[in-house]
Measured scan of single mutants.
Amino acid sequence: MDVFMKGLSKAKEGVVAAAEKTKQGVAEAAGKTKEGVLYVGSKTKEGVVHGVATVAEKTKEQVTNVGGAVVTGVTAVAQKTVEGAGSIAAATGFVKKDQLGKNEEGAPQEGILEDMPVDPDNEAYEMPSEEGYQDYEPEA
C-alpha cells in the first residue's frame, strides 16, 4: 500500500510541476504579447503594419512553449490582441483601416495563427491545408 501511495504522490508532483510550467509559459506569452502591443503603439504610420505582424510573430513563438489545451486559448487571445492593436492603430490615425491585415508588401496577414497546427491532446499534428499553395516548377 505504501508503494501505491508513494507512486500516487510522485504522479501528483509531476502534474503540479507540469501545471506550473504551463502557467509560466502562458505568463511569458502574455508578456511578449504586451511587449508587441507597446511596440505597435510606438510606431509611426509606416511601421504600424509591420508592428502588428511582430506582435503576432512574438506571440506565436511563445505559444510553442505552452502545451496542451492552453495553446488553443493563448492563440485565440493573441489573435484578438493583434486585431485590437490594429483597431487602436486605425482609431489613433497611425494607419488607414484599409491597410490593416496586410503586410508591407500588401499581402493579407489573416491566418497567421489560424494555420498553425495545434492539437490540445498532444496526440497528432496535421499540416495546414494546401489550398493556398501553388506547385513550383523550376525553369529549365
Rank of each mutant, 00 (worst) to 15 (best):
M1L: 15
D2G: 15
V3P: 15
V3F: 14
F4T: 01
M5W: 14
M5I: 15
M5D: 00
K6T: 10
G7H: 15
G7C: 07
L8D: 00
S9E: 13
K10I: 12
K10Q: 12
K12Y: 15
K12S: 03
K12C: 08
G14M: 14
G14W: 15
V15K: 00
A17H: 11
A17M: 06
A19Y: 10
A19D: 00
K21T: 03
K21G: 15
T22K: 00
T22R: 01
K23I: 15
K23Y: 14
K23H: 03
Q24F: 09
Q24E: 06
A27R: 08
A27V: 13
A27K: 05
E28I: 12
A29R: 06
A30E: 00
G31C: 15
G31P: 00
K32C: 02
K32M: 14
T33Q: 00
K34H: 04
E35D: 07
G36L: 15
G36T: 04
V37I: 12
L38R: 03
V40M: 06
V40A: 05
G41S: 05
G41Q: 11
S42Y: 12
S42M: 13
K43Q: 03
K43D: 00
K45G: 10
E46A: 14
E46M: 13
V49K: 07
H50M: 13
V52K: 01
A53D: 02
A53V: 09
A53M: 12
A53Y: 01
T54C: 12
T54G: 03
V55L: 12
V55D: 00
V55N: 00
A56T: 05
A56L: 04
K60I: 15
K60D: 01
Q62D: 01
Q62W: 13
V63K: 02
V63L: 11
V63S: 02
T64V: 09
N65G: 04
V66M: 12
G67C: 12
G67Y: 09
G67I: 11
G68Y: 10
A69E: 02
A69P: 02
A69T: 02
V71G: 01
T75Y: 12
T75V: 06
T75D: 04
T75M: 05
T75Q: 07
T75A: 10
T75F: 12
A76L: 15
V77R: 03
A78I: 04
K80G: 03
K80H: 09
K80S: 06
T81M: 10
T81R: 03
E83N: 06
G84R: 09
G84E: 08
A85M: 08
A85G: 02
A85H: 04
A85W: 08
A85S: 06
G86V: 06
G86C: 10
S87E: 12
I88G: 01
A89V: 09
A89W: 09
A90W: 10
A90Y: 05
A91L: 11
T92S: 14
G93A: 06
G93T: 04
F94Q: 04
V95N: 06
K96F: 12
K97F: 07
D98E: 07
Q99E: 12
Q99W: 04
Q99D: 07
Q99Y: 15
N103K: 12
E104A: 02
E104F: 14
E104S: 14
G106T: 11
G106K: 08
G106A: 08
P108T: 12
P108N: 10
P108E: 03
Q109I: 13
Q109H: 04
Q109R: 09
E110M: 03
G111M: 02
I112S: 13
L113C: 07
D115P: 12
D115H: 09
D115R: 11
M116L: 10
P117Q: 08
P117V: 08
D119Y: 03
D119Q: 13
P120G: 10
D121K: 04
N122L: 10
E126T: 09
E126R: 08
E126Y: 05
E126H: 04
M127G: 14
P128I: 07
S129R: 06
S129W: 01
E130N: 09
E131Q: 08
G132N: 11
G132F: 08
G132Y: 11
Q134F: 05
D135Q: 05
E137F: 10
E137M: 03
E139H: 13
A140N: 13
